[in-house]
């Protein structure tokens, strides 16, 4: 009896895109944040090139305000899979006077990452940056292409995007340009979680419910930590929480949760009523926040 292999269409599409990146570009890099989306990308890349190794390095732009659990996870994954990891630090960009640290109540290094990323692209002459962005995350992302051409300044011109027809990807670029490539564009948050569960992919512990010192502000739950600005009257309490995205401590809010296993997390996501980016403080600054940041080269 022959065993018929039936594909998961979204997985097949992502693998197709990753192979196009490897074939069309000379120096691709996978932008790795330690979050679930970039971890999923690593698994897809393993599948795309097996039995060969993943033919590009990972780049982590470290704000210095990452959750320590994420960094530990990153290092063990890289070691286990024998990957090449490049780390560039926002602190260095600050020390070099290229960017200035934000101050005050909503201070975050999230937007500062852009400068460090663009410098790394220039330093290593990367022509393709693979990212885990998904179109369902945010309205402005819904129109992002799978291959998104950026100019020398990393800028995104939403009015002048190349149309993408069928599954033909056009990665032709001029010297100085680079392309942001999004293999899981068409996945939803639930798709990612179900995939992680089915594939039994390891993820950082902060995605699961744990006890943490937090405080409440603007209806969101913030991590109480030296990196996060807190007013004297904002009281620290211990709560069972987990994170739905893994950004910086300064811009990632927690949610109250009892979900301690992948099964729990998937059921929680199915029932959840706050979208993932609803817990990203950086998007709340204004309705058009994401679009404005993307135009200047944010990932």
């Amino acid at each position: 009896m022959e065993n018929l292999f039936i594909p998961n269409p979204k997985e097949a599409e992502s693998i197709h895109i990753l192979r196009e990146v490897a074939a069309q570009f000379e120096r691709p890099v996978l932008l790795f944040s330690g979050g679930k989306d970039s971890i999923t990308l690593v698994r897809l890349a393993q599948k795309a090139f097996f039995p060969a190794k993943i033919p590009f390095p990972l780049l982590h732009v470290d704000t210095g305000h990452n959750f320590p659990e994420t960094i530990e996870f990153r290092d063990s994954l890289v070691k286990e899979l024998g990957l090449e990891l490049i780390v560039r630090n926002v602190q260095d960009s600050i020390d070099q006077g290229k960017v200035r640290e934000e101050r005050g109540r909503y201070a975050s290094r999230n937007t500062l990452q852009t400068t460090t990323l663009l410098d790394a692209i220039e330093e290593f002459k990367f022509d393709a940056c693979i990212g885990g962005a998904r179109r369902d995350e945010e309205k402005a992302r819904a129109k992002e292409r799978v291959f998104s051409v950026r100019d020398d300044f990393g800028q995104w011109d939403e009015k002048n995007q190349r149309p993408e027809l069928f599954d033909m990807l056009n990665g032709k670029i001029h010297v100085g340009q680079n392309v942001r490539c999004f293999p899981i564009s068409n996945w939803t948050e639930l798709d990612v979680w179900e995939y992680i569960r089915t594939e039994n992919i390891a993820i950082p512990s902060i995605y699961f419910a744990h006890k943490r010192e937090v405080f409440f502000r603007d209806g969101m739950i913030w991590t109480a930590n030296e990196h996060v600005f807190r007013e004297a009257h904002e009281e620290v309490v211990e709560k069972m929480v987990r994170f739905r995205t893994v950004g910086d401590m300064t811009c990632t809010a927690a949610v109250l949760s009892e979900a301690v296993s992948l099964d729990d997390v998937v059921s929680e996501i199915r029932l959840s009523t706050i979208s993932e980016r609803g817990a990203r403080i950086d998007d709340k600054r204004s309705e058009a926040a994401m679009e404005t940041r993307k135009k200047v080269g944010y990932f």
Partner: peptide
């Protein structure tokens, strides 16, 4: 790491 005998269209 899977060996397949018969593969359906749409597969990578």
């Amino acid at each position: 790491d899977q060996q397949i005998d018969l593969v359906a269209p749409g597969s990578s």
